[in-house]
Design a protein around this nucleic acid. Structure first.
Length: 462
DNA sequence: TGAAATGTTGGGGCG
DNA sequence: ACGCCCCAACATTTC
């Protein structure tokens, strides 16, 4: 810190704050640091579809990003700032922005995906070589992935001890205050509409608009609503998809409209929430665990975390079966309800995600990567860690995964968690009529076939 | 954060 | 009164 101060001889040269998966103003350490530095600030977001290994955003994600950037722009303008939009390879874009503005410092909050870390590390080196101040901050995870280690010094591969270690680590810091004024430096900006993040032909986003409001204000409002009304019944109600008792905070966290530090402390302050509060924080813990695992296995979206799963004999893909699953036409009511909810709203209830994923990988015997891709394209909350992590969890190839032989029976799951059929009828109104098709596969027979195929994995382990 | 098969137990009907 | 059978309820094992 003091070294930075010594270096920072030109303290009137602007600071650049590079916004990424942290589209908020409150509890934003990089912005906070820039304000403390004192020089005028350039706030920038870079749409990077070119850097090596960066995964292109899915359609639902692009829709969300548009709304979130618009909201962030307004939030910054409300305190005298402005959001500059640029497009291109991030290292080149940021460096040219430094040249244009004569910036003396660049601040950002850390990313944890493999390709993103490479971009950031390369840029940091280049900027330091040019004599700039460069600082990165912990903002989007409660626990930096490399700080949580087993007694052997290795990364965790099982959730429960991981979360126990987190709980005994230094407590997450308190959120930073919301800034009230920004002294801004100007730079040319793209027009958000020119990025064409929103769907046009066809406009499939009507259901998303109805279900969601991207942006930090809506995120904070949703959190308060959840804590006030749902936390008390969360522990029991979270498993029933017809009840709207889940937090629905995942996309807001995905885009950093809300920080996990804000969530952590808001929940802790309502410890009277009791069982619901503890349970909800455990779910936040699974998010942390997914990033911990991804940090140590950056190719999680393409490679089995358990190497022996490479021996799994996935049959040749039946495109019609995949398509039926994607479109909610499998003839299995709970599966179709979930897939239709996903397509319509960009989200799916957690329990139904497990059921639909189990059905794809075990009843249809389709590689989990296919499902992961579809969810990546259609979910508003898919991130580089949670999406592949949870797919591998269901498939059995992942860290602390459900054993492969755990096959969900969609009919039994429906009777257990949607007993009166409310959720199914909401999304599949024609169920029970002639208009609804027979199941495309026999649940019992395909379950047996999946278990038989799994024998190859067991053999490979030996 | 399974499901199904298999095993065990105990109440009650019945001859 | 007693043994036998059935079967639900629950527990354990297996995949």
């Amino acid at each position: 810190m003091s070294r930075d101060r010594d270096r920072d001889r030109d303290r009137d040269r602007p600071s650049i704050v590079w916004f990424r998966d942290d589209l908020r103003v409150a509890d934003h350490p990089a912005l906070h640091a820039a304000l403390e530095r004192g020089a005028p600030i350039v706030c920038v977001y870079v749409l990077d579809e070119e850097s090596r290994g960066i995964r292109p955003l899915g359609g639902a994600a692009r829709w969300w990003l548009h709304g979130s950037l618009a909201a962030l722009g307004e939030a910054l303008e409300a305190i005298g700032g402005r959001l500059v939009l640029r497009r291109g390879p991030a290292d080149r874009v940021i460096r040219s922005l430094v040249d244009e503005t004569g910036a003396g410092a660049v601040f950002w909050n850390r990313r944890y995906g493999g390709p993103e870390r490479e971009v950031d590390a390369g840029l940091k080196d280049a900027l330091l070589d040019d004599g700039l101040i460069v600082r990165s901050f912990a903002a989007n995870l409660l626990f930096e992935p490399w700080t949580i280690r087993t007694g052997q010094g290795t990364p965790f591969s099982v959730f429960t001890p991981f979360w126990r270690a987190c709980r005994s680590a230094p407590a997450p810091r308190h959120p930073l205050p919301q800034p009230d004024a920004i002294d801004r430096a100007d730079a040319a900006s793209d027009d958000l509409d020119d990025w064409e993040l929103l769907p046009t032909r066809p406009d499939w986003a009507a259901g998303l608009r109805e279900a969601w409001t991207p942006g930090s204000d809506a995120a904070h409002e949703r959190m308060r609503d959840f804590l006030d009304n749902d936390l008390a019944v969360y522990a029991k109600g979270r498993d029933e998809p017809a009840k709207d008792v889940t937090s629905r905070l995942s996309p807001h966290l995905r885009w950093g409209e809300l920080s996990p530090f804000e969530v952590w402390h808001a929940v802790r302050e309502r410890r009277s929430g009791g069982e619901g509060a503890a349970r909800f924080l455990t779910e936040v813990g699974w998010r942390e665990f997914a990033w911990h695992v991804l940090f140590h296995a950056p190719d999680l979206a393409t490679t089995s975390w358990r190497a022996e799963f490479d021996a799994f004999p996935w049959p040749r893909l039946h495109p019609k079966a995949l398509r039926a699953w994607e479109e909610g036409r499998t003839g299995v009511p709970l599966v179709d309800a979930g897939m239709r909810e996903l397509w319509a709203t960009g989200t799916m209830h957690n329990r139904v995600r497990m059921v639909t994923a189990s059905f794809l990988t075990k009843n249809l015997l389709i590689d989990w990567r296919r499902g992961e891709r579809w969810f990546w394209d259609t979910l508003v909350d898919a991130d580089a860690a949670s999406n592949p992590f949870n797919w591998q969890w269901v498939a059995g190839s992942g860290a602390d995964a459900a054993p492969y032989f755990r096959v969900f029976n969609p009919e039994l799951q429906a009777t257990k968690f949607d007993a009166d059929g409310e959720y199914v009828h909401r999304w599949v109104p024609e169920v029970g009529t002639d208009a609804y098709p027979e199941p495309i596969v026999d649940l019992k027979a395909t379950r047996a076939a999946a278990l038989a195929a799994y024998e190859h994995v067991k053999a490979a382990r030996r």
